[in-house]
Simulated scan of single mutants.
Amino acid sequence: MYLPTFTLEGRTALVTGAGRGIGRAIAIGLAEAGCNVALVSRTQADLEETADIIRQNTKAQAYVIPADITDRKQIEGAFEQLITETGRLDLLVNNAGMNIRTPALEVTDDQWETIVQTNLKSAFIASQTAGRYMKEHGGGKIINISSVGGHTALRTGVVYGSTKAALIQMTKVLALEWGKYGILVNAIGPWYFRTPLTEKILSDEQYMQDILDRTPLKRIGDLKEVVGPVVFLASDAANYMTGQTLLVDGGMSIYGF
């Protein structure tokens, strides 16, 4: 029998930024695949909405854990709460991220610190915390949500692009260090998907046309199209993959901009 299983039955994941957008979609998709999911972000109301969707449409458990993902103590506390309640941690999805679109000559120190803290440092702290547990319990998987902007220069801002490129490199280094512990670390690099974070900019007709012109498939992504690759990487089907970044971008990155 050569077809590996894609089910996540009986496993437990922690997803950051799970209150809306791509993070919400990923959390729901994991639950649909049978995974129990801890939902982490600052805003409890958003997390409760995600949890309600999971509880109404799947048999999976949803754990609402409000936390500031830039605060080490709160991140560590979120993992402690999950492990205390469930006794296990199989998967971490570092999805939380943000951007402040600013020309490079106008970037302030505060903007730099805010974006780096949210997009990069929080992912490392969460990975480090998960890694310590996984090392002692036979391994696990970490999936970082980077961006095609970490692979190709985009008009998303120098700080955002730098953090997403660093996240791809962090994925490789952690995969190299932790493979011997059975910890697999991979990343996803999305292009444009319609989320609360992108809704405003995608309403600009000229900007949208520029996106479509740069995308061979001539459309933006549907959220389920980023969920599928995450479930794949989380499943046994990807058990011989580590240190990789899957670019989910409608072919955008094959151009040489």
Rank of each mutant, 00 (worst) to 15 (best):
Phe6Cys: 03
Arg11Met: 12
Leu14His: 11
Thr16Gly: 05
Gly17Trp: 02
Gly21Tyr: 01
Gly21Leu: 04
Ile22Ala: 01
Gly23Thr: 06
Ile26Asn: 01
Ala27Ser: 06
Gly29Ala: 07
Val37Ala: 02
Ala38Ser: 15
Leu39His: 01
Gln44Asn: 06
Gln44Met: 06
Ala45Gln: 05
Asp46Leu: 06
Asp52Met: 04
Ile54Arg: 03
Arg55Gly: 00
Lys59Gly: 15
Ala60Val: 03
Ala62Trp: 10
Ile65Tyr: 12
Asp71Ala: 10
Asp71Thr: 08
Leu82Trp: 09
Glu85Pro: 00
Asp90Glu: 03
Asp90Asn: 10
Val93Ser: 05
Ala96Ile: 06
Ala96Gln: 05
Asn99Cys: 11
Thr102Lys: 07
Ala104Glu: 03
Val107Thr: 12
Thr108Met: 10
Asp109Phe: 08
Gln111Gly: 03
Trp112Ser: 01
Trp112Gln: 02
Thr114Trp: 10
Ile115Thr: 13
Thr118Glu: 01
Ser122Asp: 10
Ala126Thr: 05
Gly131Val: 12
Arg132Ala: 11
Gly138Leu: 07
Gly139Pro: 02
Gly139Ser: 01
Ile142Ala: 11
Val148Trp: 09
Gly149Ala: 10
Gly150Trp: 09
His151Lys: 15
Ala153Thr: 07
Ala153Asp: 03
Gly157Val: 08
Val158Ala: 14
Thr163Pro: 11
Ala166His: 13
Ile168Cys: 12
Met170Cys: 00
Met170Thr: 03
Lys172Met: 14
Val173Gln: 07
Leu174His: 02
Leu176Gln: 13
Leu176Ser: 13
Glu177Ile: 03
Gly182His: 08
Asn186Ala: 08
Ala187Arg: 09
Ile188Lys: 03
Trp191Arg: 15
Tyr192Ile: 10
Thr195Glu: 02
Ser203Trp: 02
Asp204Ile: 11
Met208Leu: 15
Met208Ala: 04
Leu212Lys: 12
Pro216Met: 14
Ile220Thr: 11
Gly221Lys: 02
Leu223Thr: 13
Pro229Gly: 09
Tyr240Glu: 11
Thr242Cys: 01
Gln244Val: 14
Leu246Ser: 01
Leu247Ser: 08
Gly250Thr: 12
Gly251Trp: 15
Met252Arg: 15
